[in-house]
Amino acid sequence: MANDCLEVNGSCKGQPVLPGFWEIPMYAFFDKLGVNGPHLMDPWLDFPNGEDKADDAATLAYMQDTFTKHYTGNRQPIGLYTHPIHLSTTYPGVNPPQSTIDMINQFLDWAQMQQDVWIVSNEQLLAWVKNPVPLSQLDTVDALKCSTPKVDSSLTMCNGIPVNEENQLMGCTFPDYMFYTCYGCPTDVPTPANPYPPQANTTQARYRLPTNCSTPFWDPVGGVCLCKSTTDCAAMYTDNSLAIGPNGANLTGSKASASASATATTVSKKYQPFNGNGFSAAQALSAGNGVWGATAAVVALGVLAGMNTLL
């Protein structure tokens, strides 16, 4: 909700009331100018410290400084907000400096070296807020697992998986914008007051997702579920989670330690630093208390998760 709570009526003091709707503040980075030098979206495009040009070194410095103040203060999350196109190396006409990409990766490597710091999406953050568990039980949080649905790549079905849904998405054109859906274009633009408008009768009606199936396994064209029940669907996921600690250390489950060190475990695939070389333990800040609710988190938004040029 891009509203100024001090200017727009009905946008603060508990209004509007939208049950089930969560609002997460955008946490700003601050350069040497303090409150006069905030940076929100795409901070690496800004001119830091009142300068007249972008400066990767200065940007990295104030990002680390702001993070450290969160980490050693009240442990608020901190967000990394960006438009992926600004860092794309494959989009025509976009030519981001490699030094900027390297700087962002350097920040991510540095942040992960701090004890009890996790890079998560807002969805994962909310899942933990709704059901907080200590560090030793993080591997029990479903939202933090890397669950991959087991669906035959040769099947044609509009299920959100690119290889399956090719040529199955429907483009819905409205005066203000166009969007794509697997479930049939609606007669009207969906709104909070009318979230499920009826399907337009210009095409074959598509079946809505039933409560006893899961999106990757549901064929909205044929109205068929690949699994027989919610329990059956749950069994059709593979957890591809990896230990994320440096050198294979397990920092995500029962073997995790709240101390500054963690016992290394043998894993088939190990965590790879964003820049490939990582950081030494000497560059880490002091350790936290091992409970995520009291830790700082680098929150990578969904748009950041799409920046595969960085990961």
Results as ranks from 00 to 15, higher is better:
Gln98Lys: 12
Asp109Tyr: 00
Ser99Arg: 00
Ala111Gln: 01
Leu108Asp: 01
Gln124Ile: 13
Met113Pro: 06
Trp118Ala: 06
Thr100Asn: 01
Val120Ala: 09
Asp109Leu: 10
Ala111Ile: 05
Phe107Tyr: 04
Gln115Lys: 13
Thr100Ala: 01
Ser121Leu: 14
Asn105Asp: 05
Ser121Phe: 15
Leu126Glu: 15
Gln98Ser: 05
Asn122Val: 15
Gln124Lys: 13
Met103Phe: 00
Thr100Arg: 09
Asp116Trp: 14
Ile101His: 00
Gln106Pro: 06
Trp110His: 04
Asn105Glu: 14
Gln114Gly: 07
Ile101Lys: 02
Gln98Leu: 11
Leu126Tyr: 12
Leu126Met: 15
Asp109Arg: 03
Ile119Pro: 11
Val117Met: 08
Gln124Asp: 05
Val120Thr: 12
Asn122Asp: 09
Ser99Glu: 05
Thr100Gly: 02
Met103Asp: 02
Leu108Tyr: 02
Gln98Pro: 02
Leu125Gly: 07
Ile119His: 12
Ser99Asp: 03
Ile104Val: 07
Glu123Ala: 13
Asp116His: 14
Ile101Arg: 07
Asn105Cys: 11
Val117Pro: 05
Gln112Lys: 06
Val120Arg: 11
Ala111Tyr: 04
Thr100Tyr: 02
Ala111Pro: 06
Gln98Cys: 04
Met103Gln: 09
Gln115Cys: 14
Asn122His: 12
Ile101Asn: 06
